[in-house]
Design a protein around this nucleic acid. Structure first.
Lengths: 192, 192
DNA sequence: GCTAGACAGGTAAAAGGTGACATGTCTGTA
DNA sequence: TACAGACATGTCACCTTTTACCTGTCTAGC
């Protein structure tokens, strides 16, 4: 059991510990790539945030530098304390992080626009969500070749949740547009 | 058309302009209350962020202090430039703000837990979402008495979206639990 | 008359996050 | 061999957000 225990915002740490726990030792560069390719649908961070955080985590004993490779590459490995911290957060922490959602804000303020403008915005929302849906489905299709074949894939449940939420948003945009202009042609619902 | 134009993070400004546009002149205190009671499902901010932002917006000409009331109360009114800025954001800005979702991160990392623990986490997710659903439905029920009766209610579409997303998350948690432990009793789906 | 509590406004330090800059290594290919 | 581009790690200035602290006014009730 670790001495330090923050109950507040430390989700970046958790995300990094999770990746290290699942896919084994990795460098800051590797982790940055994983953020770009999969985790960014769930948590965002650039390398300028990741490198200092890894240094702090090493100082706190959650990870260690086991080996240094070519081009100054540092391979970080999760420690026992790191595993404890991760499990503790996953099982004990109730997610509640502050909501800050631009899309929902636009939805909130939609009644301020007159109907034609509101419909234009809703169409843009739909095309945006359709694009994200494509991305997510492509991710799901390529998932089995992803990180470490044979193990229950990390991120699989979140991917499912993301796809469901995208479909929900699409249905909301369709229904909202119809309630603003009942003369619209009904769209066929997108099959899961 | 205003000279200043930021395409980046200025959603707090937009949220404040939206509230002022919809419900007329208000003080920082009033706006803080509205954040607490309804907007916080969409965008979060405390008074220590709101007061300085209002001062900056006044300096930028988006709002003005029309009257000062009792107890130093300052009533802010949205200007023509403020309206322009708001409309511009609503119609032109594509929402893309960084994703940072603790709940989704937990979903992402769920495969790291062994089945009994994962099921416990999913149960906690469900009860949390059910509580939020209650809140949202209470909001919807009391909506007509809310701010300014007679006008198409601000936030109504966002409330609908929030309820749909909550139901989606509930269904996801149920299905995910069932896929982890097929012996679970099937729950009846929550009616909209 | 006093006091608790809502009303009303603010500041400052610290933490978290973004975008640009800086440095250098290794590999493949024209 | 030169050079483009991936690999690899960092720093810094600036902005946003959180937490805690501070001041004062008005009203209802004891």
């Amino acid at each position: 059991m670790s001495i330090l225990r923050y109950d507040d915002a430390m989700s970046l740490r958790i995300a990094l510990l999770g990746l290290l726990s699942f896919s084994g030792p990795a460098s800051g560069y590797d982790l940055t790539k994983k953020f770009e390719t999969s985790l960014n649908y769930v948590w965002q961070a650039g390398h300028s945030q990741i490198y200092p955080e890894l240094a702090k985590m090493a100082a706190d004993g959650l990870i260690t530098v086991e080996a240094e490779g070519a081009r100054g590459r540092k391979m970080y490995t999760i420690t026992r304390e790191g595993h404890d911290e991760l499990r503790h957060w996953l099982t004990e922490h109730t997610p509640s992080g502050p909501v800050r959602n631009e899309g929902a804000l636009q939805a909130f303020l939609l009644p301020l626009l007159d109907p034609p403008e509101a419909l234009t915005v809703l169409r843009k929302v739909s095309t945006g969500v359709e694009a994200r849906l494509e991305d997510l489905r492509a991710l799901r299709a390529g998932e089995h070749a992803q990180i470490a074949p044979g193990q229950g894939e990390i991120g699989g449940y979140a991917l499912d949740l993301g796809i469901r939420n995208a479909l929900t948003t699409l249905a909301w945009a369709r229904d909202t547009a119809a309630s603003i202009d009942p003369g619209l042609p009904p769209e066929a619902p997108d099959p899961a």
